[in-house]
Design a protein around this nucleic acid. Structure first.
Length: 721
RNA sequence: GGGCGUUUAGCUCAGUGGUAGAGCGCUUCGUUGACAUCGAAGAGGUCGGAGGUUCAAUCCCUCCAACGCCCACCA
């Protein structure tokens, strides 16, 4: 500690290697008797780009928890991994290919898979390096990838079990379709955008009559696919029920039916029924199939969002928006009045913002609210029960409400994706009798008709289907010793933005497969924002690279600023100024250590310190502080723990205690000098321990330089108590 | 349409049933003295508004306002 400044660049790599070499990241190699385990499964970062501040936040928080529990004498496992992140990675790669001027859709499936795999694996390697740079004390010997062979097999096994339990079905239903990426999406993968559209009032002539019925629609271009008109039985159109109307574009006769779900107070009280282009219409059609003349609804929009030939010669080939204008032109004489401006929510793809087109497609679904054949509650009810009973606790607690609210409105989950990057749905269809056989490999013959020709399902799983099984799969469910030792895990630390995507699914599948909760606590952090409360994004140009800034100010400073600003469930606000402030703190700590060490004299060894009342009070106060910090740590108030130790070290220890010890340190009396030194030393070593989970590098480096008997690594020292 | 959250010092935010805290910024002073990436001293807030519970409310309850977020198949 000769230099005035702490040189993080020189020290961090060295210290990380020291830790790695010790083997203590691995719970099996930790010294001493450790009866209690403490486990965190790392949310596997998506292997499709560099780490950002969100990653740095969760690494800091989880590493802090792990380091704390390790020092508390627990057998700690922090299991790292990486996620192939199916759709998201394919979207990233899609963009890359477009940039290169290649045509995404012309690449054969196998080649595309290979390319994305190469891309992902190289990202994954890079990511691991970055995690180490941030000081992650996770057990690399246990790292897992969502596309490891055993993970894939077990994921498919869960699918099979669900199928046998009657919880999987394949059916033609309305789904969300992204025409940019050519796949269906789950309810969660769409967001709603406010749009200003027009509400058109259009009259349909009643067959063999001079009367008209009027409907209101925002989508006149879908009129060629109308198969009926539904009216509220209390509306003024009630006399037309059972008659036929003329589709103004196709001139076909369509049935007029009654349905009370048609809102009287909206539009005209009559609704055109276009089952293949609107989920509500689909439902109404299903209810009234018998009364409707046209038996087979059809689609007039293709997968690319263009009108197909069934839309009629004038509309075919047009994009939806163009078709809308054209249709209105064609319908001029049927317009009842000027269209109204209409503000409403439109579903768009959460990744690319493309308007979601409702389509009717064959997809695989999971029943969330029905009981499995093998008995027990529905997937949903079990998950709700686990949280209600307190088996799983949310921090902060208010997210339990959010969780219940979501669970209450849960629909069946579409898990098919028409992409290549993912785990293939293990299903084969007999070409002859069309029976589906759930199997990882091609079946020998059809169990129904004995024929031997099959078509393999090309869809892959929604990525969250496999991620949702991560805690027990990554621990080697069901037979591995790790699963038996470390499951259920202790804390799931992740962002609240993936509460539904991930946390809810982990609870659901964890209970379904293991009969036990996957974790006892869910700690939710927020989204890292800049000092203007803005989300960091490339397009805004406000992205701070955590590794760049760690290079400048030291990883410890970055970690400390993240943890002190991370209030559970709130968005932490990070700015360079804040990080700079904690860099200054590292300098302070460094100089505290320097100062204390400089005052060491070899003769002190033979002196018994004689503590003054003031010394005793200082040590007593230290004890109070350390207890307070421990209490904060145990109640998930990490930001308070961090702020407490920061305040104490700088404004109590350095500003007051050390300052006032100077007089004695310079005294003629050896005992006075030795006493002052030993008190300072005692406080400092305690502080280093208390600070270690937050700022592991500098504390370990100082620890290594101190003259201490029977010195171990600071990372496995006992937490002060 | 449902639900959730926020409102505290110039800025960004902590916090607590008992006459308010931090960081940054600001003012004044101080460097051969561990640290100027520092130290000392200081200015600055009727804790969004109204009512209620209480001996006591910034904190609990009710209502209101502003802002933000999530969920949702009303054309």
């Amino acid at each position: 500690m000769k230099n005035k400044l702490y040189d993080s660049k020189k020290i961090e790599n060295k210290i990380y290697k020291l830790w790695e070499k010790s083997g203590y990241f691995n719970p099996d190699k930790l010294p001493g008797k450790r009866n209690k385990t403490f486990t965190i499964i790392m949310p596997p970062p998506n292997a499709n780009g560099a780490l950002h501040f969100g990653h740095a936040l969760f690494i800091s928080l989880q590493d802090m928890m792990i380091r704390y529990q390790r020092m508390r004498g627990k057998k700690t496992l922090w299991l790292p991994g990486a996620d192939h992140a199916g759709f998201e990675t394919q979207v990233v790669y899609h963009k890359k290919i477009e940039k290169e001027g290649r045509s995404f859709w012309n690449i054969p499936r196998e080649q595309l898979y290979k390319e994305i795999k190469k891309f992902t694996l190289s990202n994954k390697k890079n990511m691991e390096r970055q995690l180490k740079k941030l000081g992650a004390s996770c057990d690399w010997s246990r790292k897992k990838f969502t596309l490891d062979k055993d993970i894939i097999e077990k994921t498919q096994e869960t699918f099979k079990k669900l199928y046998q339990d009657g919880l999987i079905y394949r059916v033609q239903k309305p789904i969300h379709w992204c025409s940019k990426h050519q796949t269906t999406l789950s309810d969660l993968e769409i967001k709603h955008e406010e749009r200003n559209d027009k509400l058109y009032y259009i009259k349909y002539r009643i067959a063999n009559s001079k009367n008209f019925i009027e409907i209101a629609t925002t989508r006149p271009e879908t009129i060629p696919a109308d198969i009926a008109i539904a009216v509220n039985p209390k509306s003024k159109w009630k006399n037309f029920i059972g008659k036929k109307a003329i589709n103004p574009l196709t001139k076909e006769e369509i049935s007029i039916i009654a349905d009370s779900s048609v809102d009287l107070s909206f539009g005209t009280g009559a609704l055109k029924i276009t089952p293949f282009h609107d989920p509500v219409d689909f439902e109404i059609w299903q209810k009234h199939q018998k009364e409707i003349e046209i038996k087979h609804p059809y689609s007039i929009i293709d997968q690319f969002g263009k009108m197909n030939e069934k839309a009629g010669p004038k509309l075919a080939g047009l994009k939806i928006n163009e078709a809308r204008q054209k249709a209105i032109e064609m319908l001029k004489t049927n317009l009842v009045k000027e269209p109204e401006n209409y503000k409403h929510q439109v579903a768009v793809c959460y990744k690319c913002g493309t308007t979601i087109e409702p389509r009717i497609m064959m997809q695989w679904f999971i029943k969330m609210t029905e009981k499995p054949k093998s008995g027990g509650n529905s997937l949903r009810d079990n998950a709700v029960k686990a949280v209600k009973s307190g088996k799983i606790k949310f921090i902060p607690k208010r997210f339990e409400k959010v969780f219940f609210h979501w669970m209450k409105n849960l629909h069946d989950w579409n898990i098919s994706r028409q992409i290549v990057w993912g785990i293939r749905i293990p299903a084969y269809q007999c070409e002859n009798c069309k029976k589906w056989i759930i199997s990882k490999t091609k079946p020998l013959k059809c169990s129904n008709c004995q024929k031997t020709k099959f078509i393999q399902e090309t869809d892959v799983f929604d990525t969250w289907f496999s991620s949702g099984q991560w805690p027990f799969l990554s621990l080697g469910y069901p037979n591995k010793k790790d699963f038996k030792t470390f499951y259920p895990t202790d804390v799931m630390e992740t962002g609240w933005d993936i509460l539904f995507f991930w946390v809810a699914r982990m609870i659901i599948f964890g209970i379904y497969r293991t009969n036990n909760v996957p974790f006892r606590a869910v700690y939710l952090h927020g989204l890292v924002r800049d000092k203007n409360r803005q989300k960091m994004s490339k397009s805004k140009g406000n992205v701070i690279d955590p590794l760049d800034i760690a290079e400048t100010y030291g990883t410890d400073a970055v970690r400390m600023s993240l943890i002190t600003n991370a209030i559970p469930g709130n968005d932490p606000i990070i700015s360079e100024d804040k990080i700079k402030g904690y860099r200054n703190f590292t300098t302070k700590i460094w100089n505290i250590a320097r100062f204390i060490s400089l005052k060491y004299e070899p003769e002190f060894k033979n002196i018994k310190p004689s503590l003054t009342t003031k010394d005793k009070n200082n040590l007593k106060q230290l004890k109070i502080i350390q207890n307070k910090i421990t209490k904060y740590m145990d109640s998930y108030k990490f930001h308070l723990a961090a702020q407490e130790i920061y305040q104490y070290i700088w404004h109590n220890f350095a500003d007051k205690i050390i300052e006032s010890s100077k007089e004695k340190l310079n005294s003629e009396n050896l005992i006075d000098r030795a006493t002052a030194f030993s008190v300072n030393m005692k406080i400092m070593t305690t502080c280093l321990k208390l600070l270690h989970p937050f700022m592991p590098f500098i504390t370990e480096e100082i620890w290594q330089q101190l003259q201490i008997k029977n010195k171990k690594l600071l990372m496995i020292e006992d937490w002060p108590s």
